[in-house]
């Protein structure tokens, strides 16, 4: 049998973020996800408030790492939303982690 646990191939994103995300596009993408999880409208999400304040508990917040990996083909720690607990902090982290990426064909 083949171990398929490593080197999973990225799937085409459902609603792809721009190839070179900006702070604003990242923030919109994150707000959209948090709003969906919490069943709130995007307007209700304060980008500087802790995500846990919206009822997203710490264990549920772990699954954000999978969304980030799916969207940006970027492996992040499951605790990324614990260490960067607001939309704003996550944006700063992601901008840094994504960096200027080499163009791929």
């Amino acid at each position: 049998m083949i171990d398929t646990s490593t080197g999973s191939t990225p799937q085409p994103a459902f609603d792809p973020a721009p190839r070179q995300p900006t702070a604003e596009s990242l923030a919109r993408w994150l707000v959209q996800h948090v709003a969906a999880y919490t069943r709130l409208s995007a307007d209700a999400i304060d980008r500087t408030a802790p995500l846990t304040g919206y009822g997203l508990d710490s264990v549920a917040a772990l699954s954000l790492c999978g969304d980030i990996e799916d969207e940006f083909d970027l492996a992040v720690e499951p605790t990324v939303a614990w260490d960067h607990p607001t939309v704003e902090a996550l944006v700063a982290y992601l901008l840094d982690a994504l960096g200027p990426r080499p163009e791929t064909a």
Binding site: M1, I2, D3, T4, S5, S8, T9, Q11, D57, V59, A60, L62, S63, G66, D67, D70
Partner: peptide, 25 residues
């Protein structure tokens, strides 16, 4: 509840057929 919070990972893994199959074997 711990499993529910892992639904998205599990769904993705099921779609892609990922998981440590050698470890399971």
């Amino acid at each position: 509840n711990s499993l529910i919070s892992q639904f998205s990972t599990l769904v993705r893994a099921h779609r892609r057929g990922t998981g440590d199959v050698a470890g399971a074997a």
